[in-house]
Amino acid sequence: MEVLGERVNVLLEELMVHKITGLPLTNYGFFLLIAFTVTLVFFLIASRKVAMVPKGIGNVAEAGVEFVRDNIVMDVIGPEGKPYLPFILTVFFFVLFNNLIGLIPGFKPGTGTMGTTVAWAVMVFLVYNWIGISKHGAWGYLKSFYPKGVVAPLAVFVMLLELISHFIRPLTLSVRLFANMFAGHVILGIFGIFTVILFEASVAGKVMTLLPVAMQIIMYAFELFVAFIQAYVFAILTSVYISGAIHAGEH
């Protein structure tokens, strides 16, 4: 048990945010820049390979873009969401590539740290509120928080709750993504530790090693799924918030 605790401490130490000496980057920031480069290069190449008859990398990029356009932007916002498509595409694919790159053994997801997720969640918060204000005017947008058909004292209370829920949004958005990515890596690490401990133990333990190895494979597949799901959730919530800002005061 002591060995386990020691190793978990080492794992957490490894997963903690460190500043890389000599660079203005943390260890997560470093992998974020790798994901940044991969995303940039992937789409710049893919956008030059699109053809009327879809093929290869161009087809992959097209399928991704079409998915975000039809299943996220059009479904959630509708045709008014078209101007925000590039923004939501960037959100989805940058989060996705960060999540996926973190799954390469030895790599970390750029989204596995609160610094990144808070930055993007606050950015989303600012963007959708800016959209709301530019669509309805500052006063009109603020008024949309005041419920219609509710008696005055209660309405003020509801409005307060609405405002609070809006300010909680960036927090939930950032923590959800960070926690999923971080916890995924902790779980994979813990099963790795089990594997090593059992393998170093008795002969019976060596046979038992198969169990955490199998678990690790299953969890890895699950994390792959989570990588997509979290990118999808982040993008769809962004769309929901933007849609709410566009249609503010209609409900």
Binding site: M16, V17, K19, P24, L25, T26, Y28, G29, L32, L33, F36, T39, L40, F43, L44, A46, S47, A61, V65, L85, P86, F87, L89, T90, F94, G110, T113, M114, G115, T116, V118, A119, W120, M123
Partner: peptide
Amino acid sequence: PKDMLLEVIVALVSFLVLFGVLGKFAF
């Protein structure tokens, strides 16, 4: 993290660059 501000800046700047470049040349 204690270097959160650094990460915020890296994440924001890289997002904006990505948005700018891909939004203009790829998407």
